[in-house]
Computed example of a mutant assay.
Amino acid sequence: MVTDKQLSETGGQVVIGIEARHECEPLFPWEEGVTTFAVGYRLELRFDLKSPLKGRQIIDRATRQAVPML
């Protein structure tokens, strides 16, 4: 489940941040929660830009790495 998303734009790049929470919380306090994003599913999110992307690079806010355009 997505709990927050952030966007900042400059003339050369668009930086996006997405905060997600694992929906499978432990049932009992003594169970350890397993958090892994190694296995996932596709989730579409919408970001409204102030101006068209026009070749600007998309950057992951957490890792500062370029996000591949699919």
Rank of each mutant, 00 (worst) to 15 (best):
S51E: 15
L7W: 11
F28Q: 10
R61M: 10
V39L: 05
I59A: 02
A38E: 13
I58Y: 05
E32D: 09
L70C: 01
F37P: 00
R64G: 02
Q13H: 09
F47S: 11
I16V: 15
Q65W: 11
E44F: 13
E23Y: 12
H22I: 05
V67H: 07
L45C: 14
P26I: 06
M1S: 04
V15L: 09
H22T: 03
F28G: 07
S51A: 15
Q65E: 14
S8E: 15
S51C: 11
L27W: 10
E44S: 14
A20D: 00
R56Q: 08
A62Y: 13
F37R: 01
I59W: 03
R46W: 07
E9C: 12
Y41W: 02
D4H: 13
Q6F: 14
E19W: 06
V15N: 07
P52N: 02
R46F: 11
W30S: 09
I16H: 09
V67C: 06
A66C: 08
P52I: 02
G12I: 08
R56A: 03
M69Q: 14
A66K: 15
A66D: 14
E32Y: 04
L43Y: 10
P29E: 03
E19T: 11
E19M: 03
E23C: 05
V2R: 03
E25W: 07
L7T: 13
L7F: 09
L27M: 09
P26C: 07
S51N: 15
I18W: 11
I59V: 11
T3W: 01
C24T: 10
L53S: 04
P26L: 06
K5L: 13
D4V: 05
A20C: 00
L45D: 15
E19I: 03
T63D: 11
L53N: 07
P29M: 05
R21W: 00
P29S: 05
V39A: 05
D60C: 12
L27C: 08
I59C: 04
G55A: 03
K50V: 12
Q13F: 07
V15F: 02
D48W: 12
R61N: 12
R56I: 08
D4K: 14
G33K: 04
T35N: 02
F47V: 08
R64L: 02
D4Q: 10
T35D: 01
E19L: 01
E25I: 00
P68S: 11
G11D: 15
L70A: 05
P26G: 05
G40D: 02
V2E: 02
G40Q: 02
G17H: 14
L43F: 05
M69L: 14
L7D: 12
E25Q: 10
D60A: 11
A62D: 14
G33L: 02
V67Y: 07
G12P: 04
E9Y: 13
P26W: 05
L45I: 13
E31I: 03
R56Y: 06
E44W: 10
Q57W: 04
T3M: 02
Y41I: 01
A38K: 09
